[in-house]
Design a protein around this nucleic acid. Sequence first.
DNA 1: CGGATCGTTGATCCTGCTCAAAGCCAGTGG
DNA 2: CCACTGGCTTTGAGCAGGATCAACGATCCG
Lengths: 276, 276
Amino acid sequence: MYTGAASCAPCTSSVPGGGEGHDHLIRKIANFSSLSVQEVSRLREVGGKTETFGRGEDIVKGERPRKVFVMTEGFAIRYRLLEDGRRQILTFLIPGDLCDLHVFLLQSMDHSIAALTPTKVVAVETRDIVSMVFQHPRITAALWWAMLQEEAILRERIVALGRRAAEERIAYLLCELFWRLEAVGEIKGGSYVLPLTQEQLGDALGLTPSYVNRVLGKLRVQDVIDFGKDRLEIRDVKRLTQVAGFDGSYLHFTPPPEEMRRYFESMEEGAPEDAA
Amino acid sequence: MYTGAASCAPCTSSVPGGGEGHDHLIRKIANFSSLSVQEVSRLREVGGKTETFGRGEDIVKGERPRKVFVMTEGFAIRYRLLEDGRRQILTFLIPGDLCDLHVFLLQSMDHSIAALTPTKVVAVETRDIVSMVFQHPRITAALWWAMLQEEAILRERIVALGRRAAEERIAYLLCELFWRLEAVGEIKGGSYVLPLTQEQLGDALGLTPSYVNRVLGKLRVQDVIDFGKDRLEIRDVKRLTQVAGFDGSYLHFTPPPEEMRRYFESMEEGAPEDAA
DNA sequence: CGGATCGTTGATCCTGCTCAAAGCCAGTGG
DNA sequence: CCACTGGCTTTGAGCAGGATCAACGATCCG
């Protein structure tokens, strides 16, 4: 069994095992379930060519999606533009995130994805994903989990936008990114790479750049965080968490219920019917 | 082939075929893909006992989810409470909606679901869903699609909360519900059942009850809508759409790309590998 | 009839927006 | 090495969309 780095607590060791492939993804999944060595290598071999995008470049435009992307390096956003130029950033994509696990069913994307920094993605053929899904229940479960997490993140954003004040929102987002980056081993000490302008932060949180600036300033003066030059330093995690009212349980970095694990394992060897 | 009511345009005929089971679900799916008669009956037989909930009752509390629910009747909300009592409504559930297609993977729910009106749901065993998924690729595709749609709705809500003004948000939500109800045949003429208080509307849109009231008043005076007594009457769809800046394409009531359809159909008869 | 819940309206306040100008780089070109 | 530029941050002054609070009507229901 490959268990990877299964803790939620700080941990900065690098991922074991070979190439540059899906290490972040595998590591992220390891927070949730343990895949067998076989499964891990099956996952690894599901790779297409690596594609590279420059800062600001669109990874997926509005049109019909063809492939699934796995982020392997960089920082990207999903976003939507309104006709009058208003922009809303929907999510941030970090290494290990799946771009569009099943959008191939759709006629068109309802939003775009752009790289904020030089970004690498592995493009996987839809067909490879689908056949893997039908062959490896445990991998399927892991991918489902990733989708669930993604959805939970969206819901949490809704809560933030609907019911939290500016300061809370900002603190919340910073907490969330901390946990997510943590889960793929991208946290060094108390800080992480955050290649965002204040305007982009605002576009994610429904705020204007100047106001974001003021709030950041306030948090800096209070020595809670220091956000500058593409890097966020968290000076006081406790305070930040508290300001945010953050509770990370929605990220579900926690193994699934025991029976479910068993159930998926039992499907591994054929007969899906005879589950305990 | 069962094609059901596959149009997006107004249509009020009732769903053909037997019992009270998953008719709304099947009808909704029919907007997107056509299932065979076999598949439809397979779907129909995946039913557990029907459970009933009264107005205001919780359907799913915070705890560990065990089953998948399919809404067959009524109107419900997913919501989250913050510690200080603030509430955010995340989504509205209408007949044909799946409650929690794969949350069984999680240790705990991060939000709750409550009935706004007397509501019926069919509780399906997780295991039945999972085995159906592995046996019927086309059904799987349909369920995936439903999940995608759900996610798109969440994203669109984020856009609304982040970047739209109060009036736009309200109009937007009303448009969305119109389309969704339309897709399951719950629109009569220009109006639909909307058993919401203004406070609940506010909780969904990040607004206070009084302000919701003012905006509704304004829209009523302008003869765009009339919202009263658990029913919304749309007086001027064009104006409403325009006020909202609504574009329904994110709901993806549109068949999937041809090759994908073929691909899933090809998997129907065994060998997942030999796709065109 | 009394009580609850919900809708309506007004007065007032404040969070966060707008607009504008000035500083601060990092990169570029001379 | 300097000047210039363009993006980003910082700060200020003023404004407004929507919040708050409070009171009063409806309506429903036992």
